[in-house]
Simulated assay, not measured.
Amino acid sequence: MKNLQAGDLDRVIHLIKPTPKESRFGGPGTEVEYLPENGVKVWANRKDEIAGASEEVEGKRVTAVSLVSFSIRYRSDINPTWRIVEEGGQVYNIVHVAEQGRRQWLVIKAKHHD
């Protein structure tokens, strides 16, 4: 991967962390939800990973899966439980987060089910 420059960050993405859903008894439950107000917007660079494209079976349906890399400025709080939402509304599940450079950039690998 080439050295990233600030000018390479050409799109805005929304990083959303999971929030525990309340159980029917009012306490924290075991399920999570992704609320836009629990996220942050950041500038990113997107790269489609051709080698990561595949198909997965969901129930009785086969769906296409796209693997995408997003590069953002370094943040210490992002992890694979978060999701990414692009400006067009596409939702990605984060698969892997890796630091590039010494706390300079984060490369986030994410999946999108078509």
Rank of each mutant, 00 (worst) to 15 (best):
W43A: 13
G29A: 03
E22T: 09
T19I: 10
E55F: 14
F25E: 12
I16H: 03
P80R: 09
G27I: 00
R83M: 15
P28V: 01
T30Y: 09
A53S: 13
V62S: 13
A98I: 03
H113I: 08
A110W: 06
E49H: 02
V32D: 05
E22S: 11
L9V: 03
G52T: 05
G7H: 15
L35N: 04
K109F: 00
L67E: 15
V91R: 13
K17H: 08
D10E: 12
A53I: 09
V62G: 06
E31Q: 09
M1I: 09
V32C: 01
H113N: 08
G26Q: 05
V107C: 03
S71D: 13
A53V: 13
V95I: 09
S71A: 13
I72R: 11
K109C: 00
A53P: 00
E33M: 04
N3H: 06
H14I: 06
P28Q: 07
A44E: 04
E22Y: 14
T19C: 02
L67T: 15
I13S: 06
P36N: 07
M1Q: 07
G89H: 00
D8V: 08
G26T: 03
I50H: 12
W82E: 02
K111D: 00
D48M: 14
I13N: 04
Q104K: 15
G52Q: 06
K60E: 15
R46H: 07
T63M: 10
H112L: 07
P18A: 07
A110M: 06
K47S: 14
E86W: 01
M1K: 12
Y92V: 04
N79H: 09
N93V: 07
A98K: 15
G26P: 03
N3V: 10
A110Q: 07
V42D: 04
L35M: 04
V32P: 01
E37Y: 15
G27P: 00
K41M: 08
A51Q: 13
K2Y: 01
A44M: 08
D77K: 14
Y92R: 07
L106E: 03
Y34T: 05
K17D: 08
N93P: 00
S66C: 05
D77R: 14
G26C: 05
S54L: 06
H113Y: 10
V107R: 15
S71F: 06
M1T: 10
E87T: 06
A64E: 15
V42F: 01
R103S: 11
G89D: 01
K41T: 01
I94W: 12
E86M: 06
N93C: 02
V91F: 05
M1Y: 04
A98D: 12
E58M: 13
W82K: 04
P36V: 00
Q90D: 12
E33N: 05
G88K: 08
A98S: 12
R83E: 09
I84D: 03
G27C: 02
P80V: 04
K60V: 12
L4Y: 13
P80N: 12
S76I: 08
D48K: 09
I72Y: 04
A51S: 14
K21T: 05
W105C: 02
I50L: 12
H14W: 11
V32K: 09
